[in-house]
Design a protein around this nucleic acid. Structure first.
Lengths: 236, 236
DNA sequence: ACAAAAGTGTTTGGAGTACACCCATGA
DNA sequence: TCATGGGTGTACTCCAAACACTTTTGT
């Protein structure tokens, strides 16, 4: 039994997918190529899609992420909707949308989601043969982005800064299964734009009672190897 | 120069308007009457509207609030969007929508806003001759509500509980210009479902450095009159 | 042996919490 | 004079922040 998926061309979801490479906080962007008279125009966009008539918003965001990465069970959370009429007024964006969806497009309100993923998971990292790449969040103001995606990313950043402050265990969504205390601290500092004291940070994290110290150390480092920890979500 | 306002029947805003009467946290609901064969059906709904094609989401929410209360400069904040396809599947809701808007209605995604208002401001409190009334938030589960407005109110409550914890100065949006420390404490406790210690609460609030003690006391109380305070948003 | 990062405790100040009695006012 | 809430201080605990030296390992 098949059901046909009909698009609703008035509402979309966009996912701001965050990853952490051990040093920098990164966002996934998809290359967009538009054939224009005489030349090709290239920029980047967030992974997103207009919704299907028969799916809810969370399902749409989850679908977008699944199609992009092949992954399930990713942390995904709605954070804000963007509905300025002008956000879909750029002729280039309209042209691209109508070409891609084969539908007449007017105004689109988009619902923003943030996703947190482990950057080391080898994700499919392609979508319709378009290049998908990680970009340092500190560079996004210098990247040419479609629609209001620049504004969306900034709002997403603010949102996760706040959320990860209140729920620090969500940081573990961004780290490999086994990680060192330094990795965790660097991640924390990158997100909150701080410089944590090593000793105080260790104490604070251990007080969460969600970290398990492993009998294992990192490998292939040109200095003393650091102990590895894992996250135990059962505790608390 | 007039511009015609055209509706976009795919996206709406709904406002969860909170007020505080000195004892209880309240929400504004509008009576909804639907003529059905043989009888009239009555329930309540949140103030809301489908958006105009030429306004953004904040403007739509602000318009709804202006039309309802006649007030400007109300604290208003987007908190979550609701887009389950089933939310607009109840035939009664569809019937009412199509009658009200004179448009063919399919699926509507709604963007939720919370507003905080001073309940003593004599608001217009009528909309198209429909009764608008304050309801104790603790009673909402016993009230018949349109669409998914019950779910929206619950999400709004959770949202302001969190927000007022992080930004306690927003409580002053719910209080009269001059208020007693007890009023503030009761409000705090109603929102956070706590029982604060009187002395500790006083200290905590004064540490915000945003309260000015006035040379004035409350009137017409059958016991010792309490000192009045005002909020000074300049500080900090 | 040296370079690089890991690992580890103590002290101090501020905030949160617990707790009880007298005061002012109107009825 | 009584009932009702208003107003006030101290002691304890816990968390956050500041701060420096020794250890391990690879080159």
């Amino acid at each position: 039994m098949e059901t046909v998926n009909v698009y609703n061309p008035h509402v979309s979801v966009d996912c701001v997918v965050f990853g952490f490479d051990g040093e920098k906080l990164k966002v996934l962007l998809i290359e967009r190529n538009i054939d224009e008279p005489g030349e090709q125009y290239n920029d980047k966009k967030l992974p997103g899609s207009i919704i299907y008539e028969n799916e809810n918003l969370d399902e749409a965001a989850s679908r977008v992420l699944g199609e992009l990465t092949g992954l399930k069970n990713i942390y995904l959370s709605q954070f804000k909707s963007f509905g300025d009429p002008k956000r879909t007024s750029n002729p280039r964006d309209i042209y691209w949308l109508e070409n891609t969806t084969k539908m007449k497009i007017g105004r689109i309100v988009t619902v923003g989601y943030v996703a947190l993923i482990k950057i080391n998971r080898k994700i499919k990292i392609e979508e319709d043969n378009k290049t998908v790449q990680w970009y340092d969040v500190r560079d996004i103001d210098n990247i040419n982005l479609a629609f209001d995606h620049n504004e969306i990313i900034h709002a997403a950043l603010e949102h996760i800064r706040h959320t990860l402050k209140v729920e620090p265990h969500l940081m573990f969504e961004l780290l490999p299964r086994k990680f060192t205390m330094s990795q965790l601290r660097i991640l924390y500092d990158v997100i909150h734009q701080t410089h944590s004291d090593v000793r105080n940070f260790q104490k604070k994290m251990m007080q969460l009672h969600q970290l398990v110290m492993l009998d294992e150390v990192e490998k292939n480092v040109p200095h003393r190897a650091a102990r590895l920890y894992k996250f135990d979500r059962k505790k608390l």
